[in-house]
Lab assay of single mutants.
Amino acid sequence: MDSLVVLVLCLSCLLLLSLWRQSSGRGKLPPGPTPLPVIGNILQIGIKDISKSLTNLSKVYGPVFTLYFGLKPIVVLHGYEAVKEALIDLGEEFSGRGIFPLAERANRGFGIVFSNGKKWKEIRRFSLMTLRNFGMGKRSIEDRVQEEARCLVEELRKTKASPCDPTFILGCAPCNVICSIIFHKRFDYKDQQFLNLMEKLNENIKILSSPWIQICNNFSPIIDYFPGTHNKLLKNVAFMKSYILEKVKEHQESMDMNNPQDFIDCFLMKMEKEKHNQPSEFTIESLENTAVDLFGAGTETTSTTLRYALLLLLKHPEVTAKVQEEIERVIGRNRSPCMQDRSHMPYTDAVVHEVQRYIDLLPTSLPHAVTCDIKFRNYLIPKGTTILISLTSVLHDNKEFPNPEMFDPHHFLDEGGNFKKSKYFMPFSAGKRICVGEALAGMELFLFLTSILQNFNLKSLVDPKNLDTTPVVNGFASVPPFYQLCFIPV
């Protein structure tokens, strides 16, 4: 009986604490739906499609509103004006990374994606500088992407125009580009180590996009005490870190300090320079996690976009025909596509942009946080508050993009057929937390897609009208449904 009384008292205290925290903070924060004790607004949000729920709530509470995930307040920004004001106009104040408990377990605050403060700034600055020195957006990395595009075309030829699921092959190409940047090595598509790495990356994007992960991140005790797919994700990350550590040891034994070959060499050189400046942010643990982040951000996002792009091109054969006509006119058949071609191919450029806009790969991006107490639109948001960005509300804005739910390359073309930029184009987020590999991803999408369409016609196994382009999961990332196609050599 005594234990029951204690339990009831504990629960009562928890409920009172929950109510007090919510009521004391709500006077400062933007308005929002009334949260339930302990669980907050979790029942009012469709976990399978958070973005749709945010759109519905914005119609009631406006472009800036507050939700509670458990006891934790989260300020939501919906629509271009609110997102721009926060991420661009007040970029420094909104540059923090929001709480992501599962990532905390995986990387302990290291790396480039989930770190904060001085650690994040130094690692991000170093990573950007190193990638630029190796030619991100310049010639040397373009050579690597072109080489991988040629290998991709050869792998597709091996399908002999038979029906195939493109998931694996389209994942190999961007993964190999990242391998060449980090390890100075590309792998054969049949290499077992490479296959294991690909498998872990593919599993992780599916797990991260599941409703279960949303629950884990908002009720963090689940991570330590409950079984579930989150444990598989943590094991996959541990596998990748151990693999990278092996490569780091190989580099330490063979590195030429006067001739760095890749990202690992550059990081080890930085560690050597910083060894007298303790404590340094440049450690082996930081290198492991930064490399894992580059793999995660640079492989599955690009391969998922490529997979979605081919599905949309199957669905819209008239678009595919126009792209192939432009390829034939500008590039021809006797040389590989290059980035200089893009400025002469406005329709193809528009298609690449429209694919990214339409699929809305990361509907709410990753959570941000404010780095200080900030007054925002007459609300006071306390330091450390998590900020949720609705990228969907920007990419699918119906004023900027008429009929935003329709796939239409003319969203990025003017009346004369010239490519038209849009400030609403934010597939990689915006501001200080914009994806480090934005330029690389854009290069890969253009070169891989043009190389495929230069060499193959795409054949659907069903009537294009019957192809479903609805994402199968739409949590962290929008993942396309399973499909097969035939690559018919031109």
Rank of each mutant, 00 (worst) to 15 (best):
Y379V: 03
F482G: 09
H230R: 07
E122G: 11
H353G: 01
N231F: 05
V370L: 09
V462Y: 08
P63A: 06
S127M: 07
I88Q: 10
Y80E: 05
P489F: 01
F183R: 01
C151N: 07
D256P: 12
N457F: 07
D191G: 02
L314Y: 02
E438T: 08
T130L: 11
T470S: 12
M345L: 10
G228L: 07
P471G: 07
I389W: 02
N217R: 11
H344M: 08
L234M: 15
A441G: 08
Q252H: 10
K28Q: 11
L197C: 03
T305G: 03
N116E: 08
E155P: 02
P427E: 13
L395A: 08
E415Q: 13
Y80P: 05
F401M: 05
R342D: 00
L195R: 13
T55L: 08
R21T: 09
V5G: 11
I178L: 13
P346Y: 02
G137I: 11
N474D: 05
F219V: 09
K185I: 05
K273G: 09
H230P: 06
L458T: 02
E328H: 12
L310S: 00
I45A: 07
L311R: 00
T55G: 08
I181N: 00
P402K: 06
S429E: 05
Q356T: 07
F134L: 15
C179P: 00
K421I: 12
I205L: 10
I50R: 09
Q324T: 08
M129G: 10
L54T: 02
K158I: 04
C151T: 11
P402R: 11
L467R: 02
H316Q: 03
D191A: 05
D262G: 12
N378V: 01
F100C: 11
G442M: 06
G416E: 15
P337R: 00
S162K: 14
A103Q: 13
E274Y: 07
G437Q: 05
S365M: 09
F126N: 05
G416N: 14
L11P: 01
I374L: 12
T364R: 12
I123T: 10
V370K: 01
H78L: 08
A350E: 00
F110Y: 10
C338V: 09
K241Q: 10
P481D: 03
G62S: 02
R150E: 14
C486L: 06
D468G: 06
R125H: 13
G111H: 07
V76P: 00
Q454R: 03
V370Q: 04
L71P: 15
I244V: 13
L87R: 03
A173L: 02
V60H: 10
F407D: 01
T392P: 11
H353W: 02
R139D: 06
H230Q: 12
N277L: 14
L268M: 08
L7A: 13
S115Y: 02
H276Y: 07
A82M: 08
P382I: 04
L440R: 00
I88G: 15
Y379Q: 04
N455I: 04
H78T: 12
R124G: 03
S451K: 08
R357N: 01
H353T: 03
Q252L: 11
L87H: 04
R132D: 12
L128S: 14
C216Q: 07
A441R: 02
L71Y: 13
T385M: 03
N418E: 13
E285K: 07
T470A: 15
V145Y: 00
E92F: 05
F267S: 04
S12F: 11
I488Y: 13
Q252S: 07
E281N: 12
I215E: 02
C10R: 01
F100V: 11
E438V: 08
G27K: 10
M426N: 07
K275L: 09
F239A: 15
E328I: 10
S115G: 13
I123C: 07
Y483V: 02
E142Y: 04
G442H: 15
S51G: 13
K459A: 07
Y189E: 00
P73H: 05
N218T: 11
F263D: 02
R342K: 07
M443N: 03
D468S: 10
I207N: 09
F407Q: 00
N398F: 11
S3N: 07
S23N: 14
I205F: 14
N107L: 08
H316F: 09
F263P: 04
N258D: 15
V60D: 08
I178S: 03
E92P: 07
T66P: 01
L380V: 12
I213T: 13
I141L: 11
D49I: 00
W20S: 02
H344C: 15
S478T: 13
M198W: 06
C164F: 06
T304Q: 12
L366F: 09
I112V: 13
I389A: 08
D256G: 11
K399M: 15
G135I: 11
Y243S: 04
T470Q: 14
N116I: 04
K84V: 09
V145N: 00
P37W: 06
K421H: 14
H276W: 10
G475D: 05
L195T: 10
T392G: 14
G111C: 04
S51K: 11
G475E: 05
T470R: 11
T283N: 15
S336V: 12
S478Q: 05
G228R: 06
K232T: 13
G431V: 07
K432N: 15
S343A: 11
T304E: 06
A350F: 01
P489H: 03
D2S: 13
L128V: 12
F239E: 13
K72Y: 04
F263W: 06
T348L: 05
V323N: 00
N217S: 14
L453K: 02
I488Q: 14
L458D: 01
R377A: 05
L16P: 03
K273T: 14
I222D: 02
T167L: 03
K206P: 04
K232D: 12
C10V: 13
V64M: 09
D397L: 02
E155V: 07
L445I: 04
D188N: 15
L43P: 15
V479F: 13
F267G: 05
E154P: 00
Q356D: 03
N277M: 06
I141M: 12
V370I: 08
L314P: 01
L361W: 05
Q340D: 08
L54Q: 01
L391F: 06
E288Q: 15
N107R: 13
L11E: 01
N116D: 08
L388M: 15
D191T: 03
